[in-house]
Design a protein around this nucleic acid. Structure first.
Lengths: 212, 212
DNA sequence: GATGAGATGCTAACGGTGTCAACATCCGGC
DNA sequence: GCCGGATGTTGACACCGTTAGCATCTCATC
């Protein structure tokens, strides 16, 4: 990490990259501005020429982590073969998306936690950014396809994104930091499959079960 | 926050209380050892006579927050009238537990986030502590009752706790810090109800839907 | 090509944090 | 009555984010 001239040339990206590396290793609390500057070989205050402050830096890392999550989900989704039946295929995609979400969390815990760490950005901005993300769009399309295929009732459709996302997000959190962190490796994937199956059943099951 | 003698008399509890108050107002990142000592009117290093360090202090706050969550859930569960039909009542309790979980998160966001913040305790300990908590026991009993009533299939029973908990936990997280934080107040409760309905449907729906 | 302005980097310093070592004070049991 | 251990204090250290003021480079303009 050396530079030949007084000016770095690409400090903003270099700092972001170093900060991403810190986040990957230790999550958001490991992202420290001075350490990132140190890794790049620059004084700490140089960062203030490119970022408003710590909040701005970690926000860049957060966005990068969210992008990596979306990329990972898209890749894993594309890695499985589609099914001929549209309804079954939409269900397959929904399950694959959920599994990919948790798989990323387990494979890159530091980045995943950073992607959802608290930041001082306004809620509106954060919400808008997420709704436009490729990952969310994949989910929305899949749910629309489930409705088109007659698998997901219109009554439950409005809660589709939230239920699916919340379930996988909660599962990831409980597995990473929560009480499920003690679940041994081999059982984890089975647990994920079971949860995915249950949430799909909740969305695609009958709109009105008997006896309610 | 004054004391008349050189010794405080109950510093450990006083510090924990002050720290809990900080957590209530600003979440885990607002829990700062020096500030808690300041509120109690004691030097910062005095805390080291009662806590191994910061990690120990915030762990005490975390446990207190978990206990408050469990209390709140038990209270809200008891506030609704039971149904005569055992199966319907078990479903009612499952829904009430889920709603109470998110209600606490929305009513006490600082404490909720502290209850699930990262800490250096071993995963095994954290897991064991959670499995013994009253809140988890309520969930387990309710799921067992659903099985006894024939509402929850044995095939899905093993994932019951995880699915229910993960869904409500993820929903709470997304509402507090995540992209759902922008959802306006009036819509939130409807969203919670919809998610609760869907997860119950997933657990109590038919074990094998047609076309899978 | 010289030059001046703006962009970019540096050092020094401030207040904040958790933590340790050394010292001061109180309380309970001999 | 006294002394040892428990409890609280002061002072210091390293680290953090941040600011002010200064140094250096780059580049458009004359």
């Amino acid at each position: 990490m050396k530079r030949n001239s007084y000016h770095h040339g690409d400090l903003a990206n270099a700092l972001t990259g170093a900060a991403i590396d810190l986040a990957r290793r230790g999550g958001p609390e490991a992202v420290v501005l001075r350490e990132a500057a140190r890794k790049v070989g620059v004084s700490a205050t140089a960062a203030y020429r490119h970022f408003a402050g710590y909040g701005d830096l970690i926000h860049a890392v957060k966005e990068a982590a969210q992008a990596k999550l979306a990329d990972s989900m898209a890749t894993e989704l594309a890695a499985t073969d589609p099914l001929p039946d549209p309804a079954a295929d939409a269900e397959r995609r929904l399950g694959a998306l959920g599994r990919a979400y948790v798989h990323f969390a387990l494979a890159e815990p530091g980045l995943f936690r950073t992607a959802f760490c608290r930041s001082d950005k306004s809620h509106e901005e954060a919400s808008a950014a997420m709704l436009e993300s490729p990952a969310f769009r994949m989910l929305t399309e899949t749910l629309d396809d489930l409705v088109a295929a007659g698998r997901l009732s219109l009554a439950r459709r409005p809660f589709g994104e939230t239920t699916a996302w919340a379930t996988m997000h909660g599962l990831a959190m409980l597995l990473l930091d929560g009480p499920l962190a003690a679940v041994p490796e081999p059982e984890r994937l089975g647990l994920v499959d079971g949860v995915v199956d249950t949430v799909i059943n909740g969305l695609c099951g009958p709109a009105d079960r008997p006896g309610r």
